[in-house]
């Protein structure tokens, strides 16, 4: 049975979105992305280094024609910075689907939801499809949906922490009440964390550091691919009921 992942009317096969930061080289980035099977990669917008002419570019290793680039606003601490970044990203080549993150604090990289909601509203009016990194507060995510976010992306734990989904109850609650895709963004450390996000019913997982900082990033990318598929299938299969006591798996009748 087909299980298509749809964001802003666009269909994707993989429910895993991967970041492209923190890799040792562009070759490693490309190999890890390929192993992950992701159809969407997040990218950041930064100044060109004028002094180093003919430097290789990310685009030379990951072709934006064959994989969907999702420009982000990482490092932006105000609505103005985030809007400027995404307008530039769109000009670069027509990127309409973007990842908005407006940060509130350097230590936790927690989102500033007031600026985030304000920015989402403006970007939606300007015709962007806005996927939004946000807190795991169901009231805030509802507001985001109200102002037109095309995907809600609550953090499982702080960015780059790798400590896994800390807030299962909230993530499940947000998924239950949202009519747009819910993607766990940030906090995943290893394969089982991604599976848990998917078992909670989330539509996808976005991660970067868990792959990039693994000792073998390409192997971890492959693990994440399978973890997301496993979690999704388990969710769709609907798990068994939990019991307090044992229930024998072999029949009790006709024992010798």
């Amino acid at each position: 049975m087909e299980d298509v992942f749809t964001i802003a009317n666009k269909n994707f096969n993989s429910r895993l979105i991967v970041g492209t930061g923190k890799y040792k080289s562009f070759e490693e980035t490309a190999n890890a992305v390929k192993a992950s099977g992701a159809d969407i990669v997040t990218v950041a917008v930064r100044r060109v280094n004028i002094l180093e002419k003919n430097q290789p570019l990310l685009m030379d290793y990951l072709d934006p024609k064959s994989i969907t680039y999702l420009p982000n606003t990482a490092g932006c601490y105000s609505s103005e910075e985030a809007l400027r970044t995404l307008r530039l990203a769109r000009e670069m080549g027509g990127w309409r689907m973007v990842k908005l993150e407006v940060l509130g604090d350097k230590k936790t990289l927690y989102p500033n939801m007031i600026e985030t909601i304000k920015s989402t509203e403006i970007l939606v009016k300007e015709g962007f499809d806005v996927m939004v990194y946000c807190t795991d507060d169901p009231i805030m995510t509802k507001k985001l949906e109200d102002v037109g976010a095309c995907a809600i992306m609550p953090l499982g734990a702080p960015i780059g922490s790798g400590i896994g989904i800390q807030n299962k109850t909230n993530i499940a609650l947000i998924k239950e009440q949202s009519s747009v895709p819910v993607i766990v963004d940030a906090g995943v450390g290893t394969a089982s964390d991604a599976t848990i996000a998917m078992e909670l019913g989330c539509d996808g997982v976005l991660l970067n550091t868990a792959i990039a900082e693994a000792k073998n990033p390409v192997l971890m990318a492959e693990a994440m691919k399978h973890a997301v598929i496993a979690g999704r299938k388990a969710f769709k299969a609907v798990r068994m009921k939990k019991r307090q006591y044992a229930s024998a798996s072999s029949p009790q009748r006709n024992l010798i």
């Binding site: 930061g21 562009f26 917008v45 100044r47 060109v48 982000n72 530039l88």
Partner: peptide
């Protein structure tokens, strides 16, 4: 102000202009 690609040829640079050129890099 963002400059559209089809306007690059028409845009003559003047003294003290502030120009920002950006690209995509790896990010999460």
């Amino acid at each position: 102000e963002i400059v559209e690609k089809n306007k690059y040829t028409n845009l003559i640079l003047n003294k003290n202009d502030k120009v920002e050129i950006v690209k995509f890099i790896g990010g999460g």
